[in-house]
Computed example of a mutant assay.
Amino acid sequence: MKENLEFNVAAMKNLVKKDRYLSFIKNDLSIRNLNENEEYILLILFNSNVLDNSSYEAAYKVELENQSN
């Protein structure tokens, strides 16, 4: 059974800081969507890049664990 990941702003920010591709996409989306706040942009990244990508899901889980420590 597949685990459902919950969106967490702090975990997503940390993942974006560590990943050049996600950082590039976040910057691009931010420039193209000036009226949207950072949390909304991060949610878009989470839904479109992290979910259903086993590598990003694993990295995101590490960031979630780091948030709880």
Rank of each mutant, 00 (worst) to 15 (best):
Glu3Pro: 02
Asn4Ser: 11
Leu5Trp: 03
Leu5Pro: 04
Glu6Trp: 00
Glu6Asp: 14
Asn8Met: 06
Val9Ala: 10
Ala10Asp: 13
Ala11Met: 00
Lys13Pro: 07
Asn14Gln: 12
Asn14Leu: 07
Leu15Trp: 00
Leu15Asp: 02
Lys17Thr: 09
Asp19His: 01
Arg20Lys: 14
Arg20Val: 04
Arg20Leu: 11
Tyr21Asp: 05
Leu22Gln: 08
Phe24Leu: 09
Ile25Met: 10
Ile25Thr: 10
Ile25Ser: 04
Lys26Trp: 05
Asn27Ala: 12
Asn27Trp: 00
Asp28Glu: 13
Asp28Asn: 13
Asp28Gly: 05
Ser30Gly: 13
Arg32Ile: 06
Asn33Met: 06
Asn33His: 11
Leu34Ile: 12
Leu34Trp: 00
Asn35Ser: 12
Glu36Gly: 01
Glu36Pro: 04
Asn37Pro: 07
Glu38Arg: 01
Glu38Val: 01
Glu39Trp: 01
Glu39Gln: 14
Tyr40Arg: 13
Tyr40Ser: 15
Ile41Val: 14
Ile41Phe: 09
Leu45Ser: 03
Asn49Ser: 02
Asp52Leu: 09
Asn53Ser: 13
Asn53Pro: 05
Ser54Gln: 11
Ser54Leu: 08
Ser55Lys: 03
Tyr56Ser: 03
Glu57Asp: 12
Ala58Cys: 03
Ala59Cys: 08
Lys61Leu: 11
Lys61Gln: 15
Val62Asn: 15
Val62Lys: 15
Val62Gly: 09
Leu64Ser: 11
Glu65Phe: 09
Ser68Phe: 08
Ser68Tyr: 03
